[in-house]
Structures are given as structure tokens and as C-alpha cells.
């Protein structure tokens, strides 16, 4: 009997496919799947945020808003009075309480945050040419609170931080849920548009005229050094402030809101 072990060709038990190709295909598959899952969870969180009682939101930030409580000056009372007037035009839920805080600082900024707190900086107040523009600002921020944008934003922010922590294998949970960052919440473009529309509606309800409302945006454009409206990075992430102005003008035209009266001065 003859025995032999012939040479066996290569590539029967292995493949010639480049390992990097497999790596790219597999990892992009993973990325795709996780992006889809995270987006779905984000949508669910954003949707269900509205069912969180407003009371919880207030409790959540109660320790952090104390720092603003001691500025009960004239400006504060004036802002609060305007805010109360605006609240009546926006049909806020009964338990939703709006508190305006005035901060005596240069920063050209204003923001709506958790628990119905609105923070207005002196820098921005000084830049505003009329009371109408100020009402537009406050109404815009109140609309954010009305539509629960702060809690939605917080929810998605915590979720993203959680995913990041899982991805980077962090075990320190105190880094994940940091409510003290509550004032740097950012809102999506559609949320801003919604708040703009509601804000202009309030201006019309109060003055029966919308003249001067968009001066708010003009003031922001002019203050080059810090052109923020709701958050400091606002303009860098949403460089379409002119679009917002024209969108509001269109809205006013569509609803036949007049724009003739002279705006009132700030008191």
C-alpha cells in the first residue's frame, strides 16, 4: 500500500478576508444598533417627561435656587409682575408656578430652568429697548416651562451621560446625575420655535400689537460679546436668529396681529 501526505492548498480552514474589513463591518453594526436603541429610549424619555408631576421638579432644584432668593429688589418685582401677567395669557396648568430671578451681573443671558424658575441677567435687561421685547423674552421662557422643556432636556441629558458612563465603564454614579448643572439645559430647535411662537402670542394678548417683540433678537445680535438668549452657546448651536425673526413676522402676518403701536419703555 502506498501512503502519502500531499500538500494541502492554503485557505481551506481560514479566509483571506482582511481582518480590518471585518472589524469595520462589525463595529459599524454595533454603532448603528446602539444609536437606534439610544434614540428610541431618548424619544420615550422625552415623551414621558410630561407625566412627571411639576411638584417633583420643584423639589429637585429647591436647594439650588435658594442662591437667587435674596435679590428681591425693584427689578425682581417688576419682572415677576410681568411674568404673572404673561402666565394668564398662556393657560398654564394650575400647579405650575413661575418664579423670576434677577441676577445683577454683566452677562447677556436669560434662561428657563427646572421648577418654573426663570433667571434674567442685568446685562440682557439693559440691552432690551422696550417692555414689549422684555415681555417677549419672559413669555418665551415661560413657554419653555409650560411645555416642560427643562425636565425633558434634563431627562435626555441624564440618559446620554448614563450611556457615556456605560461606554467608558465609569462606576461613579454621582457624576452621572448632577442636578447642579440644571441651569445649562439646552433645548432643541423645534422647542425654541415653539417657545417663540407662544411668546409672540402672549405679546399680542397683552398689547394687542406685536411691534417691538423681535427687538429682543436684534438686541441679542447687537450684543456681540455674548449673543446668547437661553444658553450661552445658543447662537453657536443655532445660528439662525434671522430665520427666527422672519418666522415670527410670518406668524404675525398669518394671524393678522398688528404691528403699529409704539412699544412701551421699560419701567
Amino acid at each position: 500500500m502506498q501512503y502519502e501526505n500531499p500538500e494541502i492548498p492554503e485557505g481551506i480552514n481560514t479566509t483571506d478576508e482582511h481582518p480590518l474589513k471585518e472589524f469595520v463591518i462589525l463595529s459599524s453594526g454595533i454603532v448603528l444598533v446602539s444609536v437606534v436603541i439610544i434614540s428610541l429610549i431618548l424619544l420615550i424619555v422625552e415623551y414621558s417627561a410630561r407625566f412627571i408631576p411639576f411638584e417633583y421638579e420643584q423639589q429637585l432644584v429647591s436647594t439650588f435656587t435658594e442662591q437667587y432668593a435674596d435679590t428681591a429688589g425693584e427689578e425682581q418685582q417688576y419682572l415677576q409682575r410681568l411674568a404673572n401677567e404673561i402666565v394668564l395669557t398662556q393657560n398654564l396648568p394650575k400647579d405650575m408656578e413661575i418664579t423670576v430671578h434677577y441676577v445683577d451681573e454683566e452677562m447677556v443671558n436669560a434662561m428657563a430652568t427646572l421648577g418654573g424658575h426663570i433667571i434674567v441677567y442685568r446685562g440682557l435687561l439693559e440691552k432690551l429697548p422696550s417692555e414689549n421685547a422684555l415681555v417677549m423674552l419672559l413669555a418665551h421662557e415661560i413657554a419653555h416651562i409650560k411645555y416642560r422643556h427643562p425636565i425633558k432636556s434634563l431627562g435626555s441629558q441624564i440618559l446620554l451621560q448614563l450611556f457615556w458612563a456605560i461606554l467608558t465603564n465609569q462606576s461613579n454614579s454621582s457624576d452621572i446625575i448632577d442636578i447642579s448643572q440644571f441651569s445649562s439645559l439646552s433645548y432643541s430647535r423645534s422647542n425654541e420655535t415653539l417657545a417663540d411662537e407662544e411668546g409672540l402670542h402672549s405679546v399680542f394678548q397683552i398689547y394687542k400689537d406685536v411691534n417691538g417683540a423681535t427687538d429682543l433678537f436684534q438686541a441679542l445680535i447687537e450684543s456681540r460679546q455674548n449673543m446668547s438668549f437661553t444658553i450661552p452657546e445658543y447662537l453657536s448651536t443655532h445660528p439662525d436668529i434671522n430665520n427666527r425673526i422672519s418666522h415670527l413676522n410670518e406668524l404675525a402676518e398669518k394671524n393678522n396681529w398688528p404691528s403699529k403701536k409704539e412699544p412701551l419703555p421699560i419701567q
Binding site: 481582518p19 471585518e22 472589524f23 462589525l26 463595529s27 453594526g29 454595533i30
Partner: peptide, 12 residues
């Protein structure tokens, strides 16, 4: 690297 790829393969 091989182990990483094999780990990903475990999923798919």
C-alpha cells in the same frame, strides 16, 4: 484585536 473581533462576532 482578534479577541475584540470575536467578541463582536458573538453578538452577530
Amino acid at each position: 484585536f482578534k479577541r475584540f473581533i470575536a467578541g463582536l462576532r458573538n453578538l452577530f
